Amino acid sequence: MNVLFLSLAPIASLEDRGIYPDLLRIFVKNGHFVRIISVQPDRATYDDRREGYAVLHVQTPQMQKVGLLKKGIASLQIGPNIRRALDRHCRNERYDLILMATPPITLAGVVAYIKKRDGAKFYLLLKDIWPQGIADLGAISQSGPVYRYFRAKEKKLYALADQIGCMSPANVKYVLRHNPALEPQQVEVCPNSEEPDFWTVSPEEASAIRAKYGIPQGRKIFLYGGNLGRPQNIPFVIECLRAAVHVPDAFFVICGSGTEYGKLQTFVEAEKYSNLLLLSGLPRADYDKLVRSCHVGLLFLDHRFTIPNFPSRLLSYLQAGLPVIACTDPTTDIGDIAQAGGFGWKCPSDDPAAFVRTVERACSADLASMGDAGRMYFSAHYTAEQSYEIIMRGLER
């Protein structure tokens, strides 16, 4: 089977790790050819062919870590750019399956073209519900023309899908409730997943890594790693860090990048807290060592969200054996899943005092056994092989 994969995620090689390279490797291992479309800002389009797969790097405007207006405008340009690149570089290829991950939602034209030309099936990996997400954050009006335009694009994309894979049960319920034209059997859970990577660092290595970054020994290290943008509600994160400054056993590490990084940097430089370290984004290998030297992973989502986000950052925490604190809106089910699975806690993302109480609970918890429960949950639910099987079964239906 020939598979066309569409995504905004930059993929240079399937030797990379991540939710998309790991899944696509399973397709290649099972004998399928995979054509990957990888967008790259400000570089010319070129084709890179490998054994079992090929990557078409398509020149597009910058969409990652930019403001919402620039992201919206750029998303309108991506579809035509991809179609032109396919016609030029892949004119002799035909596809049996289209895999696409949102965002964006504006590639319906490309999907419709390939479906009609090749008779391909289309499996949509729904990683972002747009434009409702930006409306929740107040970036656009839900009654305005911009929302209506992108909502029409979203409905068109859903109508093209033979199957829609959502990140969690709450996502499935949300999509069906707000899109009654879809059939229930058309929407299923196909979660974020990776190939298991359960390696650990020794106590001596963990101590050396903490010393490298100036992290004190003998404290419980709470790590947030990932995007630092509007969805994380950085002003609330700052409130939580202020409120937790007097928890004696806790030390906080914030590691990432994004449009709101400057707010955290200004706060850290002004307050100079002794229990807080801010790091800009690290290379994957360095980050993996850091996360395995910490004790608890943090997840933050703005309390205004009405869509059930499910951050993929959870996967790195679980594989490293870190329990998680999900400080989120009431819509997402990631905190409920963490509690039911025995690998974490949830608290509301509009109550700094509740965050502090949860941190204090974590400081006195059996973190090692909770970390083991997280690894077991990952193995049972979040492997790339399982996602591959879900997709293949969905197409058979």
Rank of each mutant, 00 (worst) to 15 (best):
F5Y: 13
P10V: 12
R17P: 02
R17E: 12
Y20G: 08
P21G: 12
L24H: 02
I26Y: 07
V28D: 03
G31R: 02
R35G: 05
A44E: 15
T45W: 06
D48C: 11
E51L: 10
G52W: 05
L56V: 03
M63P: 01
L68G: 09
L69A: 15
K70S: 11
K70D: 13
G72I: 00
A74V: 00
L76Y: 03
L76D: 07
R84L: 05
D87K: 00
N92S: 13
R94T: 02
I98Y: 04
L107N: 06
Y113T: 01
K115Q: 14
D118E: 10
D118A: 12
A120M: 06
F122H: 07
Y123V: 12
D136Q: 06
I140M: 00
S143H: 13
P145N: 08
R148F: 00
F150Q: 09
A152D: 07
L160G: 04
D162L: 10
Q163R: 15
G165P: 02
S168L: 02
S168H: 04
A170N: 06
V175M: 08
R177A: 14
N179W: 01
N179A: 01
A181W: 09
A181H: 13
Q186I: 00
Q186P: 11
N192G: 06
P196D: 09
V201L: 15
E205T: 04
A206R: 15
A206Q: 12
K212W: 07
Y213E: 02
R219V: 00
F222K: 14
F222E: 12
G225L: 11
G226N: 01
N227G: 11
G229W: 02
G229N: 10
R230C: 00
P235M: 08
E239F: 07
E239T: 07
F251A: 07
Y261C: 04
Y261M: 15
Y261S: 09
Q265F: 12
Q265D: 14
T266M: 14
F267C: 14
A270R: 13
Y273A: 14
L277A: 03
S280N: 13
S280Y: 07
L282W: 00
A285C: 10
C294T: 09
T306H: 14
L314Y: 07
Q319T: 13
G321F: 12
P323A: 05
I325T: 11
A326H: 03
C327W: 05
G342W: 04
F343T: 11
G344D: 12
C347H: 05
P348E: 06
D350Q: 07
P352N: 10
A353M: 06
R357M: 14
T358E: 08
E360Q: 14
D366I: 13
S369Q: 12
G374V: 11
H381C: 14
Y382L: 12
Y382K: 14
T383F: 09
A384E: 04
E389R: 15
R397H: 14
